[in-house]
Nucleic acid binder design. Structure first.
Length: 282
DNA sequence: AATGGAGCCAACCGCCATGGC
DNA sequence: GGCCATGGCGGTTGGCTCCAT
């Protein structure tokens, strides 16, 4: 079965030859790619446009970083994945010079196993039930991984990402690390309502800050249950008395500033420290 | 040296969103 | 509104390499 985009033409498949690479590289660098579908024709390639696009993005682009992922990059992937899930393209934007494909492959071949060996569910980043953990650790001889960094103390999100996590909203609640309960203790999900006060409503309704509620995603990574935001309250699935959640603003970073940070943190009753021009800490 | 399994990664597939007509 | 072309993305696969036996 051929590509829908190029089913009628005979096209090459599989690995790219150095000659094909050269043709594509030469064409893109001199002409750009106003339309990928026309690139193979003008570049003299028997490939479909989609294949050319992929080859350029994943291999030929001059700004690509080569080589192994650094420890910092690995930690960034874990941190952002905890918030975004399998949004590889979004995650890759946090790693200059890395492609979504590269990040995805690295996740599937390395990070996933590392998390499993730590007893963490790679899709939720939550601690797995004890029986699952033991089966994972006993069935693999993966080297002991380094301790997972604390989001509270070690994670810095660049303002340009417009994504950050908030933990420990309730000042009396436990830290994220302390939430790791004894293996036999299963957290009992419940709901916690966070009232949104007037300041908060005004702030979030302000077009200059966040266009509308649909631009706010809230995730509670500790629990399976997805939280929801309504027009006047946040509902977060959680256990007992503490609240841990991540909030992702899908809005341009230019709309964020220190005033916003200060109002937001006060409205949400959280410790929220503007750090410098580059990021905030929690 | 041969072989089979595991891991890695480049490339493909199929779905979805968007924009133009 | 419907159709089509195109681009973007996440999941999957096939083939190559490495390593243990």
């Amino acid at each position: 079965m051929g590509h829908r985009c190029c089913g009628k033409h005979k096209v090459n498949r599989g690995l790219w030859s150095p000659e094909e690479d050269e043709k594509l590289l030469r064409y893109i660098t001199t002409h750009g790619h106003p339309s990928w579908s026309s690139v193979p024709k003008f570049a003299g390639l028997q490939r479909c446009g989609k294949s050319c696009r992929l080859r350029w993005i994943n291999y030929l682009r001059p700004d690509l970083k080569r080589g192994s992922f650094t420890a910092e990059e690995e930690q960034s992937i874990i941190d952002v994945h905890r918030i975004l899930g399998n949004k590889w393209a979004q995650i890759a934007k946090h790693l200059p010079g890395r492609t979504d494909n590269e990040v995805k492959n690295f996740w599937n071949s390395c990070i996933k196993k590392k998390l499993l060996s730590q007893g963490l569910d790679p899709s939720t980043h939550n601690l797995m039930p004890s029986h699952k953990r033991s089966s994972v650790s006993s069935s693999s001889n993966i080297p002991k991984p380094s301790k997972k960094k604390s989001i509270m103390t070690n994670t810095k999100f660049d303002l340009s990402t417009t994504a950050f996590s908030i933990t420990n909203i309730n000042p009396h609640s436990s830290t994220k690390q302390n939430r790791v309960k004894s293996p036999n203790q299963t957290p009992v999900p419940s709901q916690t309502i966070i009232p949104i006060n007037d300041t908060m409503s005004t702030l979030l309704d302000d077009e200059n800050v966040i266009p509308n509620w649909s631009d706010v995603d809230v995730m509670a990574p500790i629990h399976e249950e997805a939280p929801m935001f309504s027009s006047d309250k946040a509902v977060v699935g959680d256990d007992d008395d503490d609240i841990n959640m991540d909030i992702l603003f899908n809005t341009p970073s230019s709309t964020f500033d220190n005033d916003f940070a200060s109002i937001f943190s006060s409205a949400m009753s959280i410790d929220f420290n503007p750090m410098d021009d580059l990021g905030w800490t929690f």
